[in-house]
């Protein structure tokens, strides 16, 4: 392996991590508060979850393609890739936020209210700590999936390890495909392990 290739692997891996981290940060920043709001708005739950489920079923390559002609959000480049990755990552985080908070024991929630907790105290002191593990599991699932999906982002100029894979596919060069696929798989394992460990460390509920 030449030094030039090695440098390129490192560079594209960093680019990949930035792409995934940005997308996950945005997706979590949107889905977590949205999930909390949804726990307070039962009638909306079906609609929002339905929409998020549909987004999830659109094949990723198609979604990237659809976004290219969209004004503001679309076009060729990183931001389009991030928009698509965020759309994919929303569902697992949203779903687990809902499940985690709605899964808090009825007796525990009722006690908290009966002790005179305000809505905010109920959320921060009871619901979120008890749901933290489930929510983080959603973030983990979404992160691992995003690391894989982000390789497709190269097709619309998003950069990252997918660049190797698409180049390799075009030139039927297995080594080059592997140069993209192996680090991506490694990143996914690392994220899964790290976030899985954090989950276990969280509240012993």
């Amino acid at each position: 392996m030449t030094l030039a290739l090695w440098n390129e692997i490192v560079e594209l891996t960093v680019e990949h991590v930035v792409l995934v981290a940005t997308s996950m940060a945005i997706a979590t920043a949107v889905a977590l508060p949205a999930g909390i709001l949804l726990t307070r708005r039962a009638p909306l739950q079906r609609w929002v979850m339905g929409f998020a489920n549909i987004m999830q079923t659109v094949p990723s390559l198609a979604l990237f393609g659809f976004l290219i002609p969209v004004p503001l959000l679309g076009g060729i480049g990183k931001h389009t890739a991030i928009v698509a990755l965020v759309l994919y990552a929303l569902l697992p985080v949203l779903r687990n936020t809902l499940a985690g908070i709605l899964g808090v024991d009825r007796a525990v929630r009722e006690s908290a209210i009966a002790m005179g907790m305000t809505g905010r105290q109920l959320l921060w002191e009871v619901e979120l700590p008890l749901a933290a593990r489930t929510i983080l599991a959603g973030v983990r699932v979404a992160t691992v999936a995003t690391i894989g999906t982000a390789t497709i982002a190269a097709a619309i100029g998003g950069g990252g390890l997918g660049v190797f894979i698409f180049q390799g596919l075009a030139s039927v060069d297995t080594a080059q495909i592997l140069a993209g696929a192996v680090p991506a798989a490694f990143l996914a394992l690392l994220a899964d392990g790290g976030l899985g460990w954090a989950e276990k460390k969280l509240s012993p509920a």
Binding site: V108, A112, M115
Partner: peptide, 20 residues
């Protein structure tokens, strides 16, 4: 309601203790 509840103790069958 918050003030009222803080003046009233409440004990239920499943205790409803905070597990964390």
């Amino acid at each position: 309601a918050i003030r009222l509840r803080r003046r009233i103790g409440y004990v239920i069958q499943e205790a409803g203790l905070f597990p964390h």
